Amino acid sequence: MTPLQPPPAAGSAANRAVRPRRRPGLTLPLPQRDPSLAVPLPLPPSSAPPTYPSSVAQLDYSELERVSRIGSGAGGTVYKVLHRPTGKIYALKVIYGNHEDAVRNQMRREIQILGDVDNPNVVRCHNLIDHNGEIQVLLEYMDKGSLEGTHIPHEPSLSDLARQILCGLYYLHKRKIVHRDIKPSNLLINSRGIVKIADFGVSRVLAQTMDPCNSSVGTIAYMSPERINTDLNHGRYDGYAGDIWSSGVSILEFYLGKFPFAVGKGDWASLMCAICMSQPPEAPPSSSREFRDFIACCLQRDPSKRWTASQLLKHPFITLHAPQARGSNQVHQSHQLLPPARPHFSSA
């Protein structure tokens, strides 16, 4: 469906020159992770000292007590840990393998950047610990795990979830940070119903360690057409618009209770053809007009026509169900966002 016109903004698609027709060819590269995509933001000078929250900056590894294992993968394990002096709970990523000094320094610099991220809808990255040759990353703990496999047919609840994702993306994009791997397994929730974006990929090592669905095939499922097929959009990739596509696919998957493309995630060749050559998936006719239009605004094949996070936060699907729009006496059923009880492989 044709989406509503977005709120006026400088440099909007309406003011841009008409682009020439896309090249018809489709390239299908092997699904291998591009290391350049693992660090989606400029890095500070290597001489800059790390800055961590004062509450954990002086944290001693010996003060951490492993409570339970949250998840594991070929490259490492995530633990729920207790900081005994304060009684606070964290998630600790332990990354296996021997890493060169250059990789360790890169991780420290990236942790420094992510340590400065402070938003209610973004998982906090607190510290990096180099213990006995192991790289360990201390993260905010989300007690209800990821939203992977969650079915949310209730539109007000889905609107609240979408609003929280967009608030996190708006904050990141405003700070020139692109996530590049938005998908249900990277969206975490706690018992208060707060949804947070996780797993930026602290170095390509950290990005590939924990999540068994974080393989190149799993990631391709949520990639935008122009990222898979570099012939589209004249080889230019807008990471911000790519995050919006991935968010739209994820939100539609929550509503449907299944992946919105007709092909399975495991058939990567068919999946890439479906993403790049077929029409974008749409919300079903049984859903509200607002939701159908919201999804259409996210899943435009032309990245210049996708709404930004800022614009989507003003979309009727979001504003009609916002807490202030429902009235102060109406309590939102945040428990409807909680995923079913099951073991999870969340990173934080």
Results as ranks from 00 to 15, higher is better:
17 A>L: 13
20 P>M: 02
198 A>E: 06
73 G>C: 02
337 L>K: 14
188 L>W: 13
6 P>W: 08
162 A>G: 07
87 G>M: 11
312 L>W: 14
239 G>T: 14
177 I>K: 08
103 V>Y: 00
276 C>K: 05
208 Q>V: 00
283 A>L: 02
86 T>P: 01
232 L>S: 14
125 C>F: 10
101 D>C: 00
60 D>E: 13
113 I>K: 09
52 Y>S: 07
141 Y>T: 04
303 P>E: 10
4 L>E: 04
92 L>C: 11
42 P>Y: 00
254 F>H: 15
73 G>I: 04
208 Q>L: 00
337 L>V: 08
308 T>R: 11
104 R>W: 02
110 E>Y: 09
106 Q>H: 12
314 K>W: 00
40 P>C: 00
250 S>I: 07
208 Q>P: 00
175 R>T: 07
254 F>P: 04
16 R>T: 08
100 E>C: 00
90 Y>Q: 07
134 E>C: 05
102 A>G: 00
114 L>N: 04
192 R>I: 00
136 Q>F: 02
23 R>H: 10
85 P>M: 12
288 S>D: 00
181 D>I: 11
86 T>D: 01
94 V>F: 03
205 V>L: 06
259 F>K: 15
333 Q>I: 08
58 Q>N: 13
110 E>L: 05
288 S>P: 04
155 E>D: 06
96 Y>V: 00
133 G>I: 09
210 M>Q: 03
229 N>M: 13
200 F>W: 14
235 G>N: 13
52 Y>M: 12
5 Q>L: 13
163 R>V: 06
92 L>H: 14
184 P>W: 10
242 G>D: 07
290 E>I: 04
325 A>E: 08
19 R>C: 02
261 F>H: 15
24 P>M: 07
208 Q>K: 02
34 D>G: 01
241 A>I: 09
228 I>V: 09
192 R>F: 08
348 A>S: 11
319 T>A: 04
89 I>C: 06
343 P>E: 11
315 H>K: 10
122 V>A: 02
168 G>H: 11
307 W>V: 03
253 E>K: 12
86 T>R: 13
